[in-house]
């Protein structure tokens, strides 16, 4: 049963990925401007242009180009970046850790802050604390990450300059990374100065990304908690002498977390989508920042590679959330 579900999901996933590939390929190829002309020095002959065009396969028909490109992708060959002259997969995978670390830090902040607000609101339900929390989360929710980022740039860049507002790590930091997971590698190698520098650079972009999601979690989780708190099993726990906070944490939270989880999965993909502009804002050397440069420079193979990677990431997250929902829910697990 579970295996069948997974197989069906994988199949639709493949269809979706194929669709993404078609859309991005079409978009990129109908873009005006000749990318080849841009990469050659002034004074290049028509022959040079023709040679290079043939090298990148731009002289063939669109469907033909697509087949060649897709064939390459399926074999792990994403082509070569026009501006950076390196294989796309190397470039993209080199930047992915930065974006992943940032997104995961944002998710952790959102889960923690949102969870705390939800529990507080449920604990003081019906009172002015709940009304205040509702108003706060409602306002925070409607402001997108871009604006939070700008606000933090202003606050922590100008008025109270305690945190860095650009880059990923202090450039004076001397450390030879073997991977691009700065935080993880820093921890593993015991270089906590590196970890600290990286985290302090990540904090503001991560907060910008986390705030709207935190507000959403606060609202939905609180709603689910309140529904659980009128169930008989919570009443029984109260009779047995558990305090309201204990009832929320021990009895209600796990039930309320399940429906919240599905939302968090979808919202996490939105959060990762938000890294594109937030990374730009904080000059953070991640995938999104590279993507915008690629678009501005008309670096077609690189754009394709990045978009495809994002799409695969989003689909993978949704898949994982669906599966973990099944695994965490005892009623479905044995069903």
């Amino acid at each position: 049963m579970l295996i069948r579900t997974i197989l069906v999901r994988l199949l639709t996933t493949a269809v979706t990925l194929f669709g993404v590939a078609v859309v991005v390929f079409t978009l990129v190829r109908v873009a005006p401007g000749n990318p080849i002309a841009m990469m050659l020095p002034p004074g290049a002959t028509d022959e040079d242009i023709a040679n290079l065009t043939a090298l990148y396969g731009f002289d063939k028909s669109l469907p033909h180009q697509f087949v060649i490109w897709l064939g390459g992708v399926l074999q792990g060959d994403f082509g070569t970046s026009i501006t950076l002259r390196q294989p796309v997969d190397e470039l993209v995978l080199g930047r992915l850790p930065a974006t992943l670390e940032l997104s995961i830090m944002a998710l952790v902040i959102a889960l923690f802050a949102g969870g705390l607000m939800a529990v507080l609101g449920a604990r003081h339900r019906g009172g002015s604390t709940e009304v205040g929390l509702d108003l706060t989360s409602g306002a925070v929710l409607s402001i997108p990450d871009f604006l939070w980022g700008l606000l933090f740039v202003l606050i922590f860049g100008v008025f109270w300059p305690v945190l860095s507002i650009s880059g990923r790590i202090d450039p004076r930091m001397e450390f030879d990374f073997t991977t691009n997971f700065y935080v993880i590698e820093g921890i593993l190698r015991g270089r906590f100065d590196v970890v600290g520098s990286t985290l302090s650079h990540m904090l503001m972009p991560a907060m910008s990304l986390a705030l709207p999601l935190a507000a959403m979690i606060a609202q939905l989780l609180k709603q689910n908690l309140k529904e659980a708190l009128v169930q008989d099993y919570t009443t029984l726990a109260r009779v047995r002498g558990f305090s309201e906070t204990a009832v929320i944490l021990r009895e209600a939270l796990r039930n309320a977390a399940l429906p919240t989880l599905t939302l968090v999965g979808v919202q996490f993909t939105f959060l990762i989508g938000g890294t594109v502009i937030v990374e730009r804002l904080f000059a953070y050397e991640g995938l999104g920042n590279m993507a915008i440069d690629a678009v501005i420079n008309r670096d077609l193979p690189l754009i394709q590679g990045i978009v495809l990677l994002f799409a695969a990431l989003f689909i993978a997250i949704n898949l994982i959330v669906d599966l973990s929902y099944t695994l965490l829910n005892p009623r479905l697990r044995h069903g």
Binding site: T16, G288, I292
Partner: peptide
């Protein structure tokens, strides 16, 4: 629904930047 699913697999900001780059 399938179209929606494909569209949701794009990071929207990147999608917007790309579209404007394509359309001018």
């Amino acid at each position: 629904s399938r179209l929606v699913e494909i569209w949701m697999a794009f990071p929207p900001v990147l999608f917007a930047v790309l579209l404007v780059a394509v359309m001018g």
